[in-house]
Amino acid sequence: MKKALLQLNAAVFLWGFTGVLGRLISLSETWLVWYRLLITVASLWLLYGLQKKIQKLPTKSILYIGLIGTIQALHWVCFYGSIKYSNVTISLTCLSTSALLSSLLEPLVLKKRFDPFEILLGLFAIAGIVVIYNTHLNFSVGIIIGLISALLTVIVSVLNKKMIDTYEPKSITLYQLTGGFVGLSILLPVYNYLFHIPLAKPAPLDWLWLVILSWVCTIFTFFLYIRSLKNISAFTMNLTLTLEPVYGILLAFLIFHENEVFNNWFYLGFGLIILAVALHTARIVMKKH
């Protein structure tokens, strides 16, 4: 149990570190995600091929999982776009609303009843975002893109719930990331044309950050995450996952000193969001017991 918890926290910490890498890499958000997926997908196919662990899935399932992967890729594009237009802290603050957005979106997709208490918590989170937005208008574009990023990751989470009981997580990850790479490759020329973004090649130092992002923060963290799930409860997993934005924000404060650009209103807004997330988590605990 202790080892599994350490593995999960290590995975979540490394996921929080992806925001820092996003700021360090000089590429635009679309090319950053494209190269990340290129390295990750090529590495996974090679790894699983050598281990003979590639599971054949029905074509319909591959297309469905690939579509989810494309949405995942767009989430990453928005996440890193939010960082480029604001900073790591703003992007992760917006991402921290995803658990509450999920509780509001799931009833629509899975045809469940809306929970009035969760709607109230969602309003708390919205209030926090409004406070941050109105008092940090220089980050307004980054906040909007960050909220779109949070919404997209919720959509991915909800859609994945329909597949997770059917196929192994490794197979879902392989085909999802592959679908994300293919989907983004198709959309990339259109995006670059509309926003006048030229073909970009990573600088020498960018390659180092991209390899770390792909191998350490994507593939290695996935293996840590999967191994930890064998010995911990779903609640412990969800509780620990809420720490991802916290780890990332603390790293941004430490490395980039981003805390120096915020006023007290930011901490009030962030506090409202964290309070909503904490109450949401506490309610899950009470339901479990």
Rank of each mutant, 00 (worst) to 15 (best):
V158S: 05
N160F: 14
S171E: 08
V154D: 05
N160V: 08
K161Y: 12
G180C: 05
V154S: 07
Y167H: 10
L174F: 00
T173I: 09
M163F: 11
V156D: 06
F181G: 04
S157Y: 15
I186A: 12
L187N: 10
L184Y: 01
G183W: 03
G180K: 00
G180R: 00
S185Q: 07
Q176F: 03
F181C: 05
I164P: 06
S157H: 09
L177G: 07
K170A: 13
T153D: 10
T173Y: 09
I186W: 11
L159I: 10
Q176T: 05
N160I: 13
V182W: 01
I164K: 11
M163S: 11
L184E: 01
L151N: 09
D165P: 04
P169D: 04
V154H: 08
K161S: 13
T173L: 09
E168T: 10
K162P: 02
V182I: 13
M163N: 13
K162I: 08
E168G: 09
Y175I: 02
T166H: 12
L174G: 01
V158K: 05
S185L: 12
V154I: 10
V182N: 02
V156F: 12
V156Q: 13
L187C: 14
V154C: 08
S185Y: 02
T153Y: 11
F181H: 07
S171F: 09
I155H: 02
G179Q: 05
P169L: 03
L151M: 12
V158R: 01
L151W: 12
L152S: 07
A150G: 14
K161Q: 15
I186S: 05
F181N: 00
Y167R: 09
G183K: 07
L174C: 04
V182C: 00
N160T: 09
T166C: 07
Y175S: 04
T153E: 13
G179L: 04
Y167L: 10
V156T: 10
T178L: 06
A150P: 12
L159R: 06
K161V: 12
P169F: 00
K162W: 12
K162H: 15
D165F: 08
T173H: 09
L177I: 06
L152M: 15
L152N: 13
Y167P: 03
Q176M: 14
K162M: 11
T153V: 15
L177V: 08
L177C: 09
L177K: 06
Q176L: 14
K162Q: 14
F181T: 00
G180V: 02
A150V: 14
S171Q: 12
P169T: 01
K170I: 08
K170Q: 10
K162N: 15
T166P: 02
L184P: 02
T166S: 13
Q176S: 12
G179D: 07
L152W: 05
Q176Y: 05
K161H: 11
S171G: 10
S171H: 11
T153L: 13
S171C: 14
Y167N: 08
S185A: 15
G179P: 03
L184A: 03
G183S: 11
G180M: 00
S171T: 13
I172W: 03
I164W: 06
G183R: 05
S157C: 11
K161G: 10
